[in-house]
């Protein structure tokens, strides 16, 4: 990089504007996501948002963003982009073999980029969804209070769709960031995606199943089928029988709800789930373990463990504490720089 262009970039940096990413290869499924679109579920609007909400927030934290800024959700390797402008970016979630101009970038750390730098996600190492945050956030329009892409509704994100080759996304419009350098998160903040035991709270329709069937569900191993997407994962394993039939009068569906339709194979409802449905829901994955589900892929096996509602909420509050501690850690690190 010559000094002439660096002067221009510095000026842009001061303005906090004109950072861009140019999509070279969109990969299998890459979308813009934030925490999701809340407040419209009563009108039938799905929440959408990042599948791995913890990784999404962490990606923002390590580049000094507010934790719910829009980020890029990358599903499986293949994604490649070129940066324009100068700033900081961070990767969290799955290890999809990222490298910047050939230099390896491990997840859970931030790095500096300059115009022309090329970021490539080349191999499947651990997990299936990576998050890329850029200082100042991804600048796409707010639609109904969120920048999340809801694919089926074709709204939000970048033109309501997954990213395609040649797309140019503006970044860094928000100037409320605090990044002054790069961060590598300590182990204590990094989740263990290798865990194959997912905790659940029973209900709301566990009374539609006998104790034997519930025990079968909790003691069996299930595999993720190839019918898995942002809406939900269909699992395969021992069939769960209903005491009185699979259908109920429709009610609302929470994230992580485990539906048992007539065929007896569980379906876990995820970010793009419909708001209401008429299948019995045996149990619900606890919030902090939704990240584990988000990182599973076709063929992965999973077991379910029952915990109490109190335990699930204690873990939720603990994770919130972890995020606040992480924000403080990052701010302290920035201060050292």
């Amino acid at each position: 990089m010559n000094t002439g262009s660096r002067d221009i970039l510095n000026k842009e940096m001061v303005n906090g504007l004109d950072k861009k990413i140019i999509i070279e290869n969109p990969g299998m499924l890459t979308t813009v996501q934030d925490k999701g679109r809340f407040g419209f579920q009563r009108f039938g609007m799905p929440v959408a948002g990042a599948m791995d909400a913890f990784a999404m927030q962490t990606a923002n934290v390590i580049v000094g963003n507010n934790r719910n800024e829009a980020v890029i959700e990358i599903t499986f390797p293949g994604f490649a982009l070129t940066f324009s402008g100068k700033g900081y970016a961070g990767i969290t979630g799955a290890d999809l073999g990222a490298s910047l101009n050939g230099r390896e970038i491990k997840p859970w750390q931030s790095f500096e980029f300059r115009t022309g730098d090329r970021l490539v996600f080349a191999s499947l190492k651990k997990g299936s969804r990576a998050y890329l945050a850029i200082v100042g956030g991804i600048d796409v329009p707010l639609v109904m209070g969120s920048r999340s892409t809801y694919l089926r509704g074709k709204i939000g994100g970048f033109e309501g769709r997954k990213l395609l080759k040649g797309d140019i996304l503006l970044c860094g419009k928000t100037e409320q960031y605090r990044a002054l350098g790069t961060i590598s998160l300590p182990e204590e903040f990094i989740p263990d995606y290798g865990k194959r035991e997912v905790r659940v709270v029973l209900g709301p329709q566990d009374d539609c199943f006998t104790k034997e069937e519930i025990d079968k569900f909790l003691s069996s191993t299930y595999k993720v089928t190839n019918q898995n997407d942002r809406m939900g994962y269909r699992l395969e394993g021992p069939l769960i029988k209903h005491s009185m039939g699979p259908d109920i009068i429709s009610d609302g569906i929470a994230p992580g709800a485990i539906q048992i339709p007539g065929h007896g194979q569980p379906i876990i409802m995820l970010a793009d789930r419909q708001t209401t449905g008429g299948y019995t829901k045996l149990a619900n994955v606890i919030s902090v373990d939704l990240s584990l589900i988000a990182q599973l892929m076709y063929g992965d096996s999973v077991k379910f463990k029952k915990v109490s509602l109190e335990e699930a909420q204690r873990l939720y509050i603990e994770q919130e504490g972890c995020l606040l501690k992480m924000i403080k850690y990052v701010e302290d690190e920035f201060r050292k720089i």
């Binding site: 407040g39 579920q41 009068i249 009610d251 929470a254 209401t276």
Partner: peptide, 22 residues
């Protein structure tokens, strides 16, 4: 209390358990 979904026979309420208890 964040939002709610009315249905034929119930209402689902979304809340933040670090702010308000069940």
């Amino acid at each position: 209390l964040i939002e709610w979904i009315p249905t034929y026979r119930s209402i689902l309420f979304t809340y933040n358990p670090s702010i308000v208890s069940f």
